[in-house]
Design a protein around this nucleic acid. Structure first.
Lengths: 346, 346
DNA sequence: GAGTTGATTGGAAACGTTCCCAAGATGCGG
DNA sequence: CCGCATCTTGGGAACGTTTCCAATCAACTC
């Protein structure tokens, strides 16, 4: 690989001059610049990133930690980050959770790996990390932004939709459709975003005078497999309900799959509501009605905040993210409400 | 950030000694080493990746280009790469296709971006790249491995399952179940892996004396949306068929979604066969029978090959990848074969 | 006890940039 | 033609490592 010295030699100029032409800073006579450009082309010169990093102390590299790349929740996030970074000539290095250790250790190890790689800044997603962990990590690399979770100690570095409101929206959607008997397939109780949306959901139900003892909740793991077995358990339990709220789309898809096999018509017999509104929701059978979490916006704003921290830029940063439910086919009127003798006055 | 000079000073040793302790190469008196380690800990010293890269000429960084991160086809690939890389202390930088340019330009730009970032090696996936493109790129960075596609000019750097065989397997699976009337939803005709599997599929049908004029093929785009509209078009066309082969799972899922809405029973009225056996296939409604492409193995072996090229290692490299179909619920016996009067002897 | 070997050590050189500084060239006003 | 400002240029220093070389010292061998 040709170096800047070669370029300078071939162009017949000094080192400094060549550097000025390449970086575009400082004044250079047009004729000289032309010679340098010719030399660059001739030698196929490409500046060494390592040398620049060494001198500037910045790698122009942002690390992204994601617990596990399964399903379609994280994919738009990665796309969004890469798009914005590349537009600024920077790049993204990704690390997932790996190994036999528990999720928390995996996350610490993954984030630390990225720090050791000299990332200028970090985007972290994790339900397993504790406040003390993020504090310790933050001491090693202060340029951290967290997505889809709020750590109280670094609140202004955290970006998330309001999942309590998401839960409220879910409840309202179902109540609007005359549902009164509910079941819930929740995510892990250790996941903060899960407890928030459940809190919102249950709170709204209570506000509408639904007896919370009548709503059956099964804790699962955010996976389609989990949704499937939970659906099965729900059916076996003989608990009667007309609407099922799933704490994410993945589980909802698993549920739909099981209901189809069990011969249960959605939404005719049971309505199913998803959460996140990921790509999977768009073309399930039936198409899934879901609470839309604007993760692209959350990501973009979190990233902007991070870039501002890392590079003293002044990108706009929004911190509120409106939630709405997108209506597709899996939620309908509650069965009893559909029978004319029960609801129609005439 | 503390440097190795600080460590040497605090430990009261020379630069070389400190370096020897840190890198673990060369002999150092145990007592001295202990002093150095204490200094490292005290100063929270972390070697600069940039400086090492500059000196060694290796960034320990592998670039991965992926056209677009949608659906679940690419996610296990990224997971696999990251896992293996991290185990070796290396890391992965990912670039996706972005921008308004056509796919080919996007790919060239993305790959070039990774080359400019001084990646030691590249893993590339793209249907849009031409032989001449890969040749040009290869001149800039010879350490390239291509997944899921064979470029004749760099055959030994390409890793892919045999999609012709995949197509054959698909046909056999359907024929075995007595199907004789087919429809196909294909991927883009510009995608080499798509044409290979169609070729295998049609070839096997012909071999089994199926009139190829009777099989209706619709070209689509590998997306669920595409599957949905193709399914709709197929139904509207009044073409009669009992089995539908979809060139990937994503489209199959879209098909399932539309069939459910149209009130068509799968597999009772129509069997649907997917391809790739991605995660989405596992919990669709009904669960999708699909031709399993072992992308994890393809990826792992491609990566090994790349690492061998980059770092003179001797990792084992396999080049054949067995394909099989995994049976779930979306393929059944052809309807007419199920009626007793047609098939049962008594 | 001289010579040989091996372990241990410190420091210079190099990797490829950018930035700073000094110096030469040029142009302009008086 | 001198003084001064501005443009242009070349090269040294620095960034943080590793590698190489020379030097010192202790332990053997004969």
């Amino acid at each position: 690989m040709a170096t800047i010295k070669d370029v300078a030699r071939v162009a017949g100029v000094g080192l400094g001059t060549a550097s000025r032409v390449i970086s575009g800073k400082g004044s250079v006579a047009p004729e000289t610049a032309k010679r340098v450009h010719r030399a660059i082309k001739k030698l196929k010169f490409r500046p060494s990133h390592a040398a620049r990093s060494l001198l500037s102390g910045s790698t122009q590299m942002i690390g992204v930690y994601i617990p596990i790349l399964k399903g379609t929740f994280y994919t738009p996030i990665l796309q969004t980050i890469d798009a914005e970074l590349r537009a600024g000539g920077r790049h993204m290095v990704v690390a997932f959770g790996h190994g036999l250790a528990d999720e928390r250790r995996q996350a610490i190890e993954g984030v630390r790996f990225l720090i050791n790689r000299d990332c200028d800044g970090l985007i972290v997603m994790s339900n397993a990390l504790l406040e003390e962990d993020i504090a310790a990590l933050g001491r090693e690399q202060p340029n951290i932004v967290v997505l889809n979770r709020i750590f109280q100690s670094i609140r202004e570095q955290c970006f998330s939709a309001d999942h309590v409101q998401g839960g409220v929206a879910a409840a309202k959607a179902l109540l609007q459709h005359q549902h009164r008997r509910f079941a819930v397939i929740a995510g892990p109780s250790s996941a903060p975003d899960n407890v928030a949306r459940l809190k919102g959901f249950m709170g709204e139900l209570r506000r509408q005078r639904i007896d919370l003892h009548s709503v059956r909740t099964i804790e699962s793991d955010f996976s389609p497999e989990g949704g499937w077995v939970s659906a099965k358990a729900l059916l076996a339990s003989k608990h009667r309900f007309t609407a099922l709220f799933c704490a994410n789309d993945e589980m909802a898809v698993g549920v739909l799959s099981h209901f189809q096999q069990a011969g249960l018509a959605v939404p005719h017999e049971i309505s199913v509501l998803g959460y996140d509104d990921t790509h999977t929701a768009e073309y399930s059978a039936p198409r899934l009605t879901s609470v839309h979490i604007p993760m692209r916006e959350v990501t973009a704003n979190g990233l902007n905040c991070l870039l501002n921290r890392c590079y003293d830029s002044l990108l706009p940063v929004e911190r509120e993210f409106p939630i709405n439910v997108v209506w597709r086919a899996s939620v309908g009127l509650a069965p009893q409400a559909q029978t004319p003798e029960a609801s129609a006055p005439g």
